[in-house]
Design a protein around this nucleic acid. Structure first.
Lengths: 255, 255
DNA sequence: CGACTAGTTGAGGCCAGTCAATGTTGGTGG
DNA sequence: CCACCAACATTGACTGGCCTCAACTAGTCG
């Protein structure tokens, strides 16, 4: 389904320092910039080495590629190194909904844990790269490295907590509050990753944002415009600049 | 906060067979009717014994009691033996939403895993009894009993999958579809537990159901009435009888 | 350049919310 | 046992927020 990420993609043609390129291909948590947000946080160097040995490979995705699809056999978790993905849940009747928006440092695929199949689609919103963490190896390793087991559990809890937040948003917030809460959530997540919390680029279309928020794309567009008229944000296509974080918080909590 | 479940509650005054009563107090997975739906499913007798030794105690709850509250230190998972509970997520601004409805055989408290605190309130909807599964012991045991580790993961995945289903419901279904889907979900869960799938008693008020479904209580009431007029269900206060499961499925999927 | 996708904005309709009145149920105490 | 009360539930009338449908613009790609 997805074109295999061949080595030739990672190594520029005629690369003058092939040795370095090959070493880069080898995933090494110790030098990964996402180390502090990812699974190995807090592990000793020795333990880190063990995790390294469990990481099978990286996988590159082009915009629109599926990392996995609902119903596919579950075999691994994925740590996002570069780019962003959306997850989509599908109903039997064909209805679908964006369930999550995932960016670098996030671990995805947790919904497949313990079951045999993935429960949703994960689609790249832009070119992306993930570390493949074969789950059996991870489970095995977690048995001997309690800190890893604990981190794994923490990621799981985060996922559940995040989902609960979305349920609260979908179940009890009005459209304007949802949009504001969405922007605040993005702002906070970019901040945690060291990026600007007041200016960023949306990687989803209005329709995808609407699907995530339980709204129609026109409503999302209108509310962006309304927030802009109020001077709270500036919208330039997919670029969002937040002028007044506090005002946005107030909108999110229902003025 | 919750009155302690004393032994005197479990042992009738002047009980003629006190020894038996005391043995009943001791939790034993091997003889538990929920064995096949609960954490130890598929474990060998020896492994079962180990789980037994990890189960600290039971806890009894009266209607309205909190099993735990958001912000409380997380220390254990809970297996529901008798009765039912709701979980509630709370926003900073005081907004709250019913996030789940849990019945016997369910494991709750998973949102606290790995974190230090619970992320929601769990409130008994009727008198209930739970097995207390101290999480540290469980984590420890999971390291030596792969089947237990696997079951634990399966429960976690179920929780995430369930939450995704709720998000789909809240984000993309209309009111009538939500109510129908809610009844179908209850029907299915009662069926799995060996109860009637076509007649059951709701343990939640209209308001709680509404909160769970992202609707107002009046809307829930109206839609119950409408489904009754259509001959699909019969409503008698909190007793629901489903006349036509297929018709209900059709409503749930958007006629 | 035309076809296509993404986004914005407006007009109007409908679904679910709000407000309000009334009915029903269950628990408590006389 | 009944009276009373509070909580829960039903139903109606009206409102309004979001959806639907539609027109138009801007940017992209073959």
């Amino acid at each position: 389904m997805t074109p295999p990420a061949t080595a030739s993609e990672a190594v520029p043609r005629d690369a003058p320092f092939e040795v370095i390129s090959i070493r880069d291909l080898r995933v090494r948590c110790a030098t990964c910039s996402m180390r502090e947000l990812c699974l190995p946080v807090g592990l000793s160097p020795g333990e880190l080495e063990q995790v390294d040995s469990a990481v099978a490979s990286r996988r590159r995705l082009h915009k629109g590629d599926a990392l996995y699809r609902a119903g596919e056999a579950f075999g691994a978790l994925y740590a996002i190194r570069v780019g962003s993905l959306k997850t989509i849940v599908l109903a039997e009747d064909g209805r679908e909904q964006v369930a999550g928006y995932h960016m670098l440092g996030d671990i995805i695929g947790l919904d497949g844990i313990g079951g045999e199949r993935h429960g949703c689609d994960a689609i790249a919103l832009e070119d992306a790269e993930v570390c493949v963490l074969p789950f059996e190896r991870l489970e095995e390793l977690a048995r001997s490295v309690p800190a890893l087991q604990h981190n794994l559990h923490r990621f799981i809890a985060n996922e559940i907590t995040r989902d609960h937040g979305v349920m609260l948003l979908l179940g009890s917030m009005r459209a304007e509050e949802r949009v504001a809460a969405f922007l605040l959530s993005l702002s906070e997540r970019y901040r945690q990753r060291g990026y600007s919390s007041t200016e960023f680029v949306l990687r989803m279309t209005r329709e995808e944002i609407g699907s995530f928020l339980g709204l129609k794309l026109e409503t999302v567009s209108r509310l962006f415009s309304r927030l802009q008229e109020a001077g709270i944000i500036r919208v330039g296509g997919r670029t969002i600049a937040i002028n007044d974080l506090d005002a946005l918080r107030e909108v999110a909590s229902g003025s």
